[in-house]
Design a protein around this nucleic acid. Structure first.
Lengths: 345, 345
DNA sequence: TGATATTATGTTATCGATAACATGTTATCG
DNA sequence: CGATAACATGTTATCGATAACATAATATCA
């Protein structure tokens, strides 16, 4: 069948006229429910097909005060973590019939955050998923302004706050699991290479390292960890530094797999056998880590799932609001899992 | 300052009433141009500030037939390539004052593609950036339907087609550069591990490998390459198979860095020295490849830039159309670069 | 100084759809 | 068989903004 030229948009009026009915009847046909006779329905449907009519979601959103669109605020999309999360968000949104209006943050100043929120609201998003992580005080605005935002918002990778919906990997528990595993392997001198400690997630992982060791009666000090910035290159530096300040170290917990990768390489260069002399545990379980040499023991977090659940959450809140149910804001944790590979034993 | 409760939206009418002017005057103040007395302007601006009024982009889009929103169609977001591209798209869109309406494809059937396009158009996107790659005949619809789509569309990672705007890394040239480099290193028996050959990009890289060798007077046959699916695990399989069918191989060009990673590992396990016995060149230049062991020689493609240029392109086409200029559809290539590291010499 | 241009503001129509209300026709039932 | 419910369709108001047109006051110039 030859499709009609779509250069000028076909509107509900065109259809109504061509079918010899009112626009209201066309609307009824398009939206299924309510009474339309079989004959009329068929006639209208035929015209719809023939003209290639698609209702304007825009116009519908305006009158219904509802857009079936979610706002997504991201940060660091060029890294794999945020994009895996975004992927989960996109899949779930699609499944539930929502589109995504995306906004990538570049830096964090509060003015800009207001703009971002406003620009999403100006387009009538029904809810917002905040994928950008908590860094420094970049979420300071949350407590103050949340109740001014007229749609549900769910935060990811944010420190749980009373009365504000959030969902995040349990970074603390993940780190504890990593340390526990190393202790089980008989290691006692466990160092840590952290992510940038302004990041809440990095801080949690470091806290897990510290607390788990403390619980095992082992003290940690400044000498036992160094700070990276998530990148492989920073990991290399951090490792070299750590070797100097903590030479007797027999295991290291690295805050992400990228940094762990360069630990593996640098260890090899220096003739440090992994895992015999030094056990290594990463965090994230990126696809490649199973193919590092040696393959990397790591804490797996399901970011895809995280994204999906966040969308599920917002949509539930949207629906609850529709029927005027009270919306309960909850903070949820998703538990990561330990994947044991060659780099530890 | 205490922000007003945003639970009920502030409209232009509220502002007009509070300021004692007509809505039109408020509109004039918001949109700068046209005559408004200084006094009135100030009064209106004060009210806008006080009520926290933000115009509804939705309503504006409806009347202006223009949304300042671009549709983005992605595929495989959980992989790093597409997300780097998306990052470029997001940055540039932001810079040019556009928002992004995102749609992630899961699989490819033509019906769904129609739906995707329709759902974007129903929201009045001003243009579309098609980030999803060409796989099999999933772009077959393009030639037939492009002229029915009433807004500019730019395709990425698509075989250039007459009259259809596209922009893509020059995969063929990249592969040729890789092979040329290996030839320059004195290698003559150069194998190839390709991506899935239904992907146009994978096919181009393979073609580059084949043609470059042919130009150097070296024949290739079925035995000299195997096919992977981009993943590290498939790369491992493909490499093992290739070692069997092409044991005398002294270099291998691998279609992406993930697969190259497992080639490095498997070679190490088998005691094959890299680069002495076997030189390895990858493709993509992912962040980690500089930290592989040995570090990986690779072809770097700037996906961020690709995304940026695509947006630049669509926006130019949108603007041209605004002033009724003819829009010239061009296919553009972005040249990749060779990064020499330890895995070849 | 009267004609015309500029400035300032308001009124009405419009974008494309649905909500709310109205009306007429056909079934159904006691 | 008359009353009421169910079905079928149309008319008008509305969402929140801007376009197009109208009007009035002031400024400018021959």
């Amino acid at each position: 069948m030859i499709l009609p030229d779509r250069r000028k948009r076909v509107t509900i009026k065109d259809v109504a006229q061509a079918a010899g009915v009112s626009t209201q009847t066309v609307s009824r046909v398009m939206n299924k429910f309510s009474y339309v006779s079989g004959e009329t329905r068929q006639r209208v449907e035929a015209v719809v097909e023939q003209l290639g009519y698609r209702p304007s979601t825009l116009a519908r959103s305006l009158i219904q005060q509802r857009s079936y669109t979610l706002g997504v605020v991201t940060f660091g999309l060029k890294y794999i973590g945020p994009s895996r999360t975004l992927n989960g968000v996109a899949d779930k949104a699609d499944e539930l019939g929502y589109m995504l209006l995306m906004k990538e943050l570049d830096n964090f100043n509060t003015n800009r955050i207001d703009d971002v929120i406003d620009s999403l609201l100006a387009r009538q998003v029904d809810g917002i998923v905040w994928v950008a992580p908590e860094i420094g005080d970049n979420h300071a605005w949350v407590e103050e302004r949340m109740n001014k935002i007229p749609v549900p918002v769910v935060f990811l990778a944010m420190r749980p706050r009373e009365g504000i919906p959030s969902i995040t990997t349990d970074n603390f528990r993940g780190a504890v699991m990593a340390i526990q595993h190393l202790l089980d392997c008989g290691r006692k001198k466990i160092g840590h290479i952290s992510g940038p400690l302004t990041w809440w997630e990095a801080d949690e992982r470091k806290r897990g390292w510290h607390e788990a060791l403390k619980a095992a009666g082992i003290d940690t000090s400044e000498k036992h960890f160094t700070e990276g910035n998530w990148s492989s290159s920073s990991g290399e530096q951090a490792f070299i530094q750590l070797l100097e300040s903590f030479p007797e170290m027999d295991a290291v917990f690295v805050a992400n797999d990228q940094m762990a990768l360069s630990v593996l390489r640098e260890a090899y260069r220096r003739g440090i056998n992994i895992p015999d002399q030094l056990a290594v545990v990463g965090f994230d379980n990126i696809h490649e880590s199973a193919y590092f040499h040696p393959s990397l023991t790591t804490i797996s977090q399901d970011l895809q799932l995280l994204g999906e659940q966040a969308v599920q959450n917002v949509v539930e809140m949207i629906q609850a609001r529709q029927v005027n149910q009270p919306v309960i804001a909850q903070s949820r944790f998703i538990q990561p899992t330990l994947i044991v590979r060659e780099s530890s034993k």
